[in-house]
């Protein structure tokens, strides 16, 4: 085996987001809900940016949303992504509100549009679960 095959640097769980990736491994999308004010987010800090309280619980969401915006990557920034060029990257707004960056799969780049309805599909890069989205049939 060629051990010099480049690997995509996909996001790994940290202490805060372990439940997010664990749910993803089961094909479920969860978001954090502040136990004090109910703010719903994909957390980048342990405290709630709305009320500054600690404490969150994870809630499964529909996995459905729309393409908020997108772009097409044409330049090689990382060798592992080179075979995919040109590839898309989108910001998806979930039905429940939070947004997250993700690739859109199962559609040609030219057919992606802002506002397009999409749904989550968890894929794997190596062992790691990666949230991607596909057009809603």
């Amino acid at each position: 085996m060629a051990d010099d095959v480049p690997v995509k640097p996909v996001s790994q769980p940290d202490e805060l987001t372990e439940p997010f990736f664990a749910a993803g491994a089961e094909g479920r999308l969860v978001v954090a809900v502040c136990t004090v004010c109910g703010d719903m987010r994909l957390p980048t800090s342990a405290t709630c940016p709305t009320c500054l309280a600690e404490g969150l619980e994870w809630r499964e969401v529909s996995g459905k949303g729309t393409v908020h915006t997108f772009a097409i990557m044409h330049r090689r920034y990382h060798p592992a992504w080179e075979p995919d060029l040109p590839y898309n990257i989108a910001v998806v707004e979930l039905e429940e509100g939070p947004r997250l960056p993700a690739n859109i799969v199962g559609v040609e780049n030219d057919d992606i549009a802002v506002g397009m309805p999409v749904e989550v599909v968890w894929e794997r890069e190596g062992e790691a679960p990666v949230p991607r989205f596909r057009p809603v049939a």
Binding site: V10, S11, L42, M73, R75, Y77, W81, Y87, N103, R132
Partner: peptide
């Protein structure tokens, strides 16, 4: 990349151009 902030890089988002 790690956590939620790492989802960008994990989706192949590299830098300000993106």
């Amino acid at each position: 990349p790690t956590g939620i902030l790492g989802l960008s890089a994990g989706a192949g988002h590299f830098g300000a151009n993106t």
